[in-house]
């Protein structure tokens, strides 16, 4: 409840702060439907800042949910979409589509430039890397090794991308490079509704595995002894994370650390591991953190903006370092 109120506050803050200085009163007037003093303000709020805020909410909560799922599934507090190379997988999917298609054939070019095409490619890419990491993780139990493997997947995909880039025309390369910058304000309502529908679909699936996820907190063998269908739970979790990370990455570019950091921040605030409480809490915290990051990225009242990825890394990287140090202390 408290988190919900906080979310509302931050939505309002996010809507009222931006490059253009719009008085809070006008923001409220616009949102409540009465005409503000300037027409351009109405457009900026309703057609630029509002979609951006909605995107931030979907992206923030989606990535955070992915992170939480991975932490439970891998039984590893340092798991997350970015750290495990899942985002890199999505990037690879997009790179293969955008850069690869131009190399091999012209027939798919139409698909390559549509957002749907990019979304599908990113989802497949992230699912593939996720399954690969999952396979490796079953052989390697050590937390640190899995992280290093995730890192290696990241460098590996980066290497493939640079090879692809070397043979690609400049125009395609530019398109790809811009995509990697990550952004929230680029989506129209059409794209947001696609993102939103997939998000809701994933949340729907997610609700059905809350119970098995809770028993996974005891480890796989205990979960089975409690009647959990482990295969089904694992597959559903992989699919949900793959789609969420893939689609979000496709639409907004790779965004670092949110998926890893938010579940930990949430667990600091809320002292429970019950996914029934934790999942919505993580989703809301993720949304809030993303809204804050976006508000900072807009550098209110200046004409310039920062890449959103830079802002989330500023938040996220110190949290990872702190976690590693804390973990060392425990061992």
């Amino acid at each position: 409840m408290f988190l919900g109120m906080l979310l509302l506050v931050f939505i309002l803050i996010n809507l009222s702060l931006g490059s253009v200085d719009i008085p809070f009163k006008s923001v409220i007037q616009t949102l409540t439907g009465s005409n503000p003093s300037k027409e351009s303000w109405q457009y900026i709020i309703l057609d630029y800042r509002l979609p951006k805020a909605v995107t931030a909410i979907l992206v923030g909560s989606g990535l955070s949910i992915s992170g939480l799922l991975m932490q439970t599934l891998f039984r590893n507090p340092l798991a997350g979409p970015f750290v495990l190379g899942i985002s890199s997988g999505a990037s690879l999917g997009v790179a293969l589509l955008v850069l690869g298609v131009s190399l091999f054939s012209g027939s798919l070019t139409g698909l390559a430039f549509s957002n749907i095409g990019i979304a599908i490619a990113a989802s497949i890419g992230s699912l593939l890397v996720l399954s690969a990491v999952m396979l490796v993780a079953r052989r390697v139990k050590n937390t640190m090794s899995i992280l290093i493997i995730g890192l290696m997947f990241g460098s590996f995909t980066a290497a493939i991308i640079s090879v692809l880039a070397y043979f690609s025309p400049a125009e395609k390369l530019q398109q790809y490079v811009f995509w990697t910058f990550g952004s929230l304000g680029n989506l129209g309502w059409n794209e947001i509704s696609i993102l939103g529908i997939l998000f809701l679909l994933c949340v729907g699936l997610l609700i059905t595995i809350i119970k098995p996820l809770n028993s996974l907190l005891l480890g796989e063998n205990y979960a089975i002894s409690l009647g959990v269908n482990l295969k089904r739970t694992r597959n559903l979790t992989l699919i949900i994370t793959g789609i969420l990370t893939g689609v979000i990455t496709a639409f907004s570019g790779p965004i670092a650390f949110i998926g890893l950091a938010v579940p930990h921040l949430t667990k600091l605030i809320i002292k429970t591991s019950n996914h029934r409480i934790l999942l919505p809490a993580v989703a809301i915290t993720g949304a809030i953190l993303m809204l804050i990051s976006d508000t900072i990225a807009q550098l209110p009242t200046s004409e310039y903006t920062l890449p959103i990825n830079a802002v989330t890394s500023l938040f996220g990287a110190p949290i990872v370092i702190w976690l590693l140090i804390k973990k060392r202390a425990l061992n």
Binding site: G18, S19, V20, S40, I44, Y48, G185, E303, Y304, T305
Partner: peptide, 13 residues
């Protein structure tokens, strides 16, 4: 210059 959409919109509309 790399500017935010809303500032360009406000000025260049």
């Amino acid at each position: 210059l790399s500017l935010s959409f809303e500032s360009v919109f406000e000025k260049g509309q």
